[in-house]
Design a binder for these strands. Structure first.
Lengths: 198, 198, 198, 198
DNA sequence: GATGAATGAGACTTCATTCAT
DNA sequence: GATGAATGAAGTCTCATTCAT
């Protein structure tokens, strides 16, 4: 049954999030789902391969969730709100994978580990970012044409800035754990609107 | 002579940046500076202790470099320029420690590892950030009183936004490695000025 | 098969007896039975755990052998003979475990190491001694009622004295290696009888 | 000055008693008296040599204390009392060396270690025991001639028995730690007297 | 007389991986 | 499909010992 493979991946993902690549032993994963170490090798040729599988399913979810709700007709406020609703996105991912990253920091850390260890992961993340950047730029350019966004603004830079702000906010909040991301997100939407809008 | 201890720390830091905590063996560090494994234990009681020492010296440099150049009389442009001149700061640190983080991503990763493993590191990083935030807020409030910054802007949120943008930019650029940070920094200074200034 | 585990324990026990806890490396045990160091960790989580396992099986044997042959109907001579037939008891243990403590001193030393390192071992040894003491006291009191043992004698003290003499004899003989325990045992039986009997 | 050498030996002895040979590092001894590891090598060529020195001074004290108070004119009661006053003897040793063995077990353990590691130590201990045995036998034979001790008793065996009982008592009390050695000693004197005397 | 740096061997332990069953 | 035994490499750490100063 494929069930076991999925169980392995999900348990592995949870452990990789909770701890880190090196600290998670195949043994612990196996025990966590009631099989033995050797059993994992039926589905994966190596720990690396299992790790990559975890990365894949996370990225799939990220891609699905990240900007799925936006369409060409979205208002500027809708776009920004979607962008700055960090928690919603991450929670959606966590829920649909039935995992639990108690702190977004853990999620970032996992991505970082992936990048550090596997060039493919860096590739995938670049794709996601540039996809977002392109998508946003298109939306913004359109809104600029419609006169919603000030003429002076370079939509490409704007996209980059906003993405950077989103990531930076999550990053800094991951460091501190004392920030109410919901509130910050709303503040950022408003201040961004004010600055962008005609 | 203390030379050896310093050599150990510097080599360790370089390796920790290049790879990661777990992947760096004391053996490799020792060999890297021409001593034996046991010799490290003359100066450090454990690998953890050595790692923390690395963190300390990095943080000291960061604190020294981060906002040292700003004074109460700095113009808004100067403040923003200092803030967005990422490369200068990081390069200064790298140079003064005689190390080389080929990609700023590596620097972030090191911080993340520190946070994940040692609560003290999180504490130290929080201190750095809140120090920056407080410092910026004071400067901005002063500039607002002088009529340089728009009345409507909440200087506290502005500080947070800018810091988040700085960090996010470095982060995203660390992912991609295809971004000219120098240019981006200048762009961000201009667009920020435009948005903030009366 | 459990064979390997047993082989490990037995070889470990033999080595612990021949040398001492610290001097015996897991490596040597492993090599001694033709497996590799890591293999031991398949069965034991630590050297300590393996050591404790050795203690357990020794204690089980001791308990089985120590006073098993005595019943309520035993004569005083039989009781004393059983008590002072050190060699038989220890040889029985050695044989049934297929080990070889060339000198009873080694056996004592092992017990001492156990006590020094693990409080549980002290507990177990105390249990064995107090069990013996209680058992002997019951037997002696009964014999006293029957008029075999002098009325003046405190059976509790007598038990302690005899046990102490047994242990002391083994101990001193362990130091010297020049004593014929068989003869000494017989002498002690006779001198004790004379002293105790009405 | 010789002072340092003595300090080293005494501190080493204390540590060897508190822990065990292998657990005591030269470093800890050195630190314990405010010098450095290397300094110990001025006075001793190796850890073994230092250990043997500890053994020597202990044995000297033991020999001095063990039967020093007895003379040809001692009564039987005096001889037995001296023999069974364990605590006095050991405390005398501890005091005169300014050390502290909280439990006589620790003292025994140290002797055992010595025996296990160094044949010379076994030799020395045998000497002590046979010296005691000879001395006692002489005294007992004399008392037997004087009609104090029953004719039937073999004075040689008696000496062995008593020594064994002394050692056994200390041994068992070392295991259990719940025995009042003072009381036991007195009991044993009385019961021995009764059994030996005409 | 003593320090302090450094060595080098060896210990316990962990773990990904293999493979017969 | 899965187990369980076993390997082997690597890692952290300890410590007696040496030696230049």
């Amino acid at each position: 049954m494929k069930e076991t493979k999925e169980k392995i991946v999900l348990k592995a993902l949870q452990y990789f999030i909770d701890h880190d690549y090196q600290s998670v032993s195949l043994n612990s994963i196996a025990k966590g789902i009631g099989i033995t170490k050797g059993g994992i090798y039926h589905y994966f040729n190596s720990k690396d391969e299992l790790f990559m599988e975890c990365m894949f399913i996370v990225f799939k979810k990220v891609q699905e969730s990240s900007m799925g709700s936006l369409s060409e007709d979205s208002s500027l406020r809708e776009v920004l709100t979607a962008l700055f609703s960090f928690e919603d996105i991450l929670e959606m991912i966590a829920e649909s994978l039935n995992i639990n990253f108690q702190n977004y920091f853990n999620f970032y850390y996992l991505m970082f580990e992936g990048i550090k260890k596997f060039p493919e992961v860096r590739e995938m993340i670049i794709n996601i970012y540039s996809g977002m950047q392109r998508g946003l730029t298109v939306l913004f350019t359109d809104l600029q044409t419609k006169g919603v966004i000030r003429k002076k603004i370079d939509c490409n830079i704007l996209s980059f800035e906003l993405i950077a702000m989103v990531e930076g906010t999550l990053l800094v909040s991951g460091f501190t754990t004392e920030i109410d991301l919901g509130l910050v997100g709303k503040d950022l939407v408003e201040s961004s609107l004010e600055r962008i809008c005609v």
